[in-house]
């Protein structure tokens, strides 16, 4: 959901659509919603790693040399590829390369209220040097706050949530999760057939996300 939001919001911001990569080979990731824009990346293949990381650096570097603004990139990293992605990210020194070509990196890590999820997030956060780490809570999933047991307390990392994705009603959630639904089209005035309440709910959700993202970039 968040990758889709980013993909759509970024496509409205610039003339060129962002380049979108999906590491989920099951087809259930962002490619399911943006089949025409997203490229599948098999992180176990070095050729795909090159397609992903080198492409981002090369396009940014080329744009910078020609004095133009480089494209944006969105990578949907599936949960089962998280460790591999950040191992490669760290091994190849991607932050260093990104820093050299002035490519800003934001790592949005979706956290569920479990100790393991918090520890995974802390591990990713601690790995980053120049990137911005954004801890995200999707309130539609496991909304009950995590309470550690006394034995767990010492091992709970200190993570502050930066971005909340509010829970949508079941009906609104069903609509935005349809394969053909695009937040960009919605913002541009599409989906006129939706009733007022539904449109207001989705718009409110988007406005909330947008203002939080703006707050984070300040």
């Amino acid at each position: 959901m968040l990758a889709r939001l980013y993909g759509d919001l970024l496509s409205l911001r610039k003339e060129n659509s962002p380049l979108i990569f999906d590491t989920d080979l099951s087809g259930n990731g962002i490619i399911n919603y943006m089949a025409d824009k997203a490229q599948a990346i098999d992180l176990s293949r070095v050729t795909d790693q090159v397609s992903l990381f080198d492409t981002m650096l090369d396009l940014t570097s080329n744009a910078s040399k020609s004095g133009s603004e480089g494209p944006d990139f969105v990578i949907d990293v599936s949960a089962n590829e998280l460790n591999r992605f950040f191992r490669i990210f760290s091994d190849i020194g991607f932050e260093r390369g990104a820093f050299e070509v002035q490519l800003d990196i934001k790592v949005c890590h979706i956290i569920s209220w479990t100790l393991k999820s918090l520890q995974n997030a802390a591990r990713v956060r601690d790995l980053l040097n120049t990137s911005q780490f954004i801890a995200v809570r999707n309130m539609a999933i496991e909304a009950v706050a995590f309470t550690p047991s006394p034995e767990e307390e010492a091992s709970v990392p200190d993570i502050e949530i930066d971005l909340f994705l509010n829970a949508l009603t079941t009906n609104a959630s069903k609509i935005v999760n349809e394969k053909t639904f695009s937040f960009a089209t919605f913002i541009e005035g599409g989906y006129q057939h939706l009733n007022y309440e539904m449109k207001a709910e989705i718009l409110g959700f988007l406005e909330d996300v947008h203002s939080q993202l703006n707050e984070l970039t300040r």
Partner: peptide, 11 residues
């Protein structure tokens, strides 16, 4: 040379 491959060699 690819940044990814250079990164692997650096590591």
């Amino acid at each position: 040379f690819s940044f990814v491959l250079r990164g692997y060699v650096r590591k």
